[in-house]
Each structure stands twice: as structure tokens, then as C-alpha cells.
């Protein structure tokens, strides 16, 4: 049985869905909501997508893709370039290694896993930022950001599950 050109193109397009969704979330993370103070505690939607795809389809989100998305995030948000590239790369590597343990488990397990990842990523971002700026930075905004990111995760996760079912479950 041979596959037609259109089928092959469709397969390639489907394979890029995780990267496209993660880039889309990265853009949304930098989009202003014009709410007072929201900018500094905006939920890190890109991190949620990186975590989700690292658990379920790490084959479709390579380390290079995680690195590039992190760089885009840094450039759009204005953080020192490289910080989120490094954090996303580490998250992708650690989660994909242990992702099998989270697959097929109840949602609460996936969420708890994300709580650990989000807090660790926030701590890493804070430590790197302090070293980069060579000054002490108030960690409170990133604690709020982590809290908001964890709180929003179930809604974003539902959207990601829906996307995966619609595009990748063939």
C-alpha cells in the first residue's frame, strides 16, 4: 500500500502540531491583557505545552524545538536571552525521561507532576536571573507567576488533550 503525496504532507503537518501549538502559546504568553500588574505574573503557557508534549509526544518536540521556543519566549517577553531556552530544554529532557510514568495516570498525577516542574522551573529562572543581573531580585512575582501557571494548567491541559485527539490520534 502506497501513501499519496497529500497523505504524506498531512502526516508532516500533523507532526508539527505540538511545535505550532507551543509557539502559539508562547505568543499568547507575551500578549498584553491590559490588566494592572498582569504582565509580571502572566501565566507561562509555553511551559505547560512543553511539559504536556514532553509527557505524551516527546518524539514530536525535539530538544532543538524546545530550545528554539525558549529563545522565542525570551525575545518576546524581554527576559535575558537564553534563560527560558535553558529552562525549557531541561524541562523537556527531565520530563521526557520520566514521561512514561505519567502516561495513562489520572489527571491529578499529571497536575502534581506539573506543580513540581513549574516550581523547579521558577526556582531555576530566579537563580539564573539573580546571577545574570548580579543583584538580589524579589522572588515574589515569580512565586505568583508559578501559582497562576499551576492554577491555569487544567484548562490549558484540556485544550491540549483536545488538540492531540483531533490532530494526532489517527
Amino acid at each position: 500500500m502506497t501513501t499519496s503525496l497529500s497523505q504524506r504532507l498531512e502526516k508532516i503537518a500533523r507532526d508539527y502540531v505540538p511545535i505550532a501549538i507551543t509557539v502559539f502559546f508562547t505568543i499568547l504568553s507575551a500578549t498584553p491583557l491590559y490588566l494592572p500588574g498582569y504582565g509580571m505574573i502572566a501565566a507561562n503557557l509555553a511551559l505547560m505545552a512543553i511539559y504536556y508534549w514532553a509527557v505524551y509526544r516527546p518524539d514530536l518536540l525535539s530538544p532543538l524545538a524546545a530550545f528554539c521556543i525558549g529563545m522565542i519566549y525570551d525575545f518576546l517577553v524581554g527576559t535575558p536571552p537564553g534563560i527560558n531556552a535553558l529552562v525549557f530544554l531541561l524541562v523537556r529532557a527531565l520530563v521526557s525521561r520520566r514521561g512514561g510514568a505519567l502516561q495513562g495516570k489520572p489527571f491529578i498525577t499529571l497536575w502534581l507532576g506539573f506543580v513540581g516542574v513549574s516550581l523547579s522551573a521558577s526556582l531555576a529562572t530566579w537563580v539564573i536571573s539573580v546571577i545574570w543581573h548580579l543583584t538580589f531580585l524579589n522572588p515574589l512575582p515569580i512565586v505568583f507567576q508559578a501559582g497562576l501557571t499551576i492554577g491555569v494548567f487544567p484548562f490549558v491541559c484540556w485544550l491540549l488533550v483536545w488538540t492531540q485527539h483531533k490532530t494526532l490520534s489517527v
Partner: peptide, 12 residues
């Protein structure tokens, strides 16, 4: 573009 960073105050 808003600063989505906890340690950055910038805008696009």
C-alpha cells in the same frame, strides 16, 4: 507585547 517576565519591565 507585554513583559511576561517576573524580573523584566518592558513592552513591545
Amino acid at each position: 507585547g507585554d513583559s511576561g517576565g517576573a524580573f523584566v519591565r518592558s513592552a513591545i
